[in-house]
Design a protein around this nucleic acid. Sequence first.
DNA 1: CTCCTATTTGTTATATTATAACATACCACT
DNA 2: AGTGGTATGTTATAATATAACAAATAGGAG
Lengths: 159, 159
Amino acid sequence: MAEHNHNICIEKSTQFAQELALSKGKKLTAQRLLVLNILLSDHKAMGAYDILDKMRDMHVAGQGKPQPPTVYRALDFLLDLGLIHKVESQNSFYACMVDRSQDEHHLAQAFICDACGHVDEKIARRGAQNLFEKAASFGFKIDKVIVECRGICATCQAI
Amino acid sequence: MAEHNHNICIEKSTQFAQELALSKGKKLTAQRLLVLNILLSDHKAMGAYDILDKMRDMHVAGQGKPQPPTVYRALDFLLDLGLIHKVESQNSFYACMVDRSQDEHHLAQAFICDACGHVDEKIARRGAQNLFEKAASFGFKIDKVIVECRGICATCQAI
DNA sequence: CTCCTATTTGTTATATTATAACATACCACT
DNA sequence: AGTGGTATGTTATAATATAACAAATAGGAG
């Protein structure tokens, strides 16, 4: 992956997260940042309890180990800010990877590899438009759209 | 709902289910039919344990009450045949409501009302085409697509 | 600085969703 | 009737998620 410098990717995402939180009067606390960084560490979807395990691995001695509500609270916070998304069809979470500076409320399409867990996220402007028009045609008011494509990524097909 | 004769709807769906099962060498047993009929009884999405409660309400005295594996097995069977679909974003299930005779493996779009649970299902030919093309552009092989629109249906907006 | 309030975090317990594992029953075919 | 495969019953438990309340912490008002 010569074209993807992941250190820069993480740094940029973290900085953006800080700014976004501040601009909404929220705080990106240490716990929340930890969860975000775990999800940013690779572009894979992770379950809440896998994240919790990682947090426990990293936990500082002398304080209790984090419990489920800790990770779910951080996840809820990050979901609210749109910094992460949930893969509804497998109860997992991944760090948002589109340029949020241009699309405040984007319709995300997630392409999830069932072999390696890798997630690609694309913005669906045309698809969103079509869905909203279709909904409007029978009077349905859309609040939220979920589009998930499960399959096998190019890398895993080559293996 | 003058335009929707629900008795005919259920009858047709049940008959189609029988034929589909037979054509695949499977049996639409009493348990499976019961679960299907519970889901057909209105066009709402229901959780597995809600379905289980209904099964228990109907259960014949003299035999043990159904347990979770019973309902999940029936749901799995019906999902495999495409007679029902799962709303991944709320872990619920609804009876398929498109004309299956024409679309063996359709891309379904579900429009779920968060007020009343009503589900409308539409076939997305154009949307499917776009998604498969987008996936192909970066070498992703799609096995399954989930499209769910959460919102408020026309009826509930009017209330 | 110190008190006050709101937010965040810690902790325990429990709710909700789903499946594993194994025993029993049923059904179609011989 | 015997036999093999499918389906169901039953018990236990795994996996995902939240409720409820106590303790700590951070920022602002005085």
